[in-house]
Design a protein around this nucleic acid. Structure first.
Lengths: 138, 138
DNA sequence: GTACATTTGTTCGTATGTATT
DNA sequence: TAATACATACGAACAAATGTA
């Protein structure tokens, strides 16, 4: 699979698709480091900014994390603790504000779950750490 | 509030904070159009790329939408339909893949709810259109 | 229907700063 | 120290979509 600059789809989209495929197929396993931006830029003959935009997409999808001086690596698959939705409760999902991001130390591309119980009390949880369940009635 | 290029916080973060404050305070109401990128660039004396990065942040937070030729506007507050979580069911939130984004015509910064019932059947819903509820037991 | 101005999108270049190895 | 790698920031040019005269 190669990147075609003459294609009508932007090269950074093409690269994001290419990298995503490699990640989701398991060819690039969780924890492993991606090639550097300059490396990808050279390998595919595209600008570094295009590489950065491709990586930004994967970050916003929660697939990779990036750290200055270390590189970009594939995120581990989330392990989610179960949180019971109590009777009369409700839950929504949304992206955190940047303040919440800092506060809860969330990676990019990680939504939050906003859980409201019957009393109206609200709880905000990282969506990569929690899942909502309703027990069987029994 | 002004933008300080010598601050240790990046100018695009400063601009994002500034615009977010204007949106969340209601000074710039839902549906209204933001100043153009070139305009913001000139007004604050920063590069257009910095403006674009600021706007990208607000997009990823689900606060604004942008369209080529039209501009950037403040998103309406989501109206979420209620979806019952059945006994034995569970739900997680995550960001959609770009394929899902296209498929479901989702704006940036909108997570999806992945709802699983007791039988194992999965339903994927836009998180800005649905909320999960558990009825009171009665 | 056409032409034009406006606006965001895409791409590359260049330079400097900062964190990690 | 030095090399590597990502982050920030500016500039420039052109493409594509939109709305308007």
């Amino acid at each position: 699979m190669r990147i075609d600059p003459r294609s009508h789809t932007p090269v950074y989209i093409q690269l994001a698709d290419l990298l995503r495929e490699q990640i989701e197929s398991g060819k690039v396993p969780p924890g492993s480091v991606l090639a550097s931006e300059t490396r990808l830029s050279q390998e595919h003959g595209i600008g570094r900014e295009s590489v950065r935009m491709a990586v930004a997409i994967l970050r916003s999808e929660g697939l990779v994390s990036t750290s200055r001086g270390r590189g970009t690596w594939v995120r581990e698959v989330p392990q989610r603790d179960e949180v019971e939705l109590t009777p009369g409760g409700s839950a929504i999902a949304r992206m955190p504000s940047s303040h919440e991001r800092r506060e809860m130390d969330l990676d990019e591309g990680v939504p939050v779950l906003e859980i409201r119980d019957a009393a109206g009390d609200v709880q905000v949880l990282p969506a990569d750490k929690a899942q909502i369940i309703r027990p069987t009635s029994d």
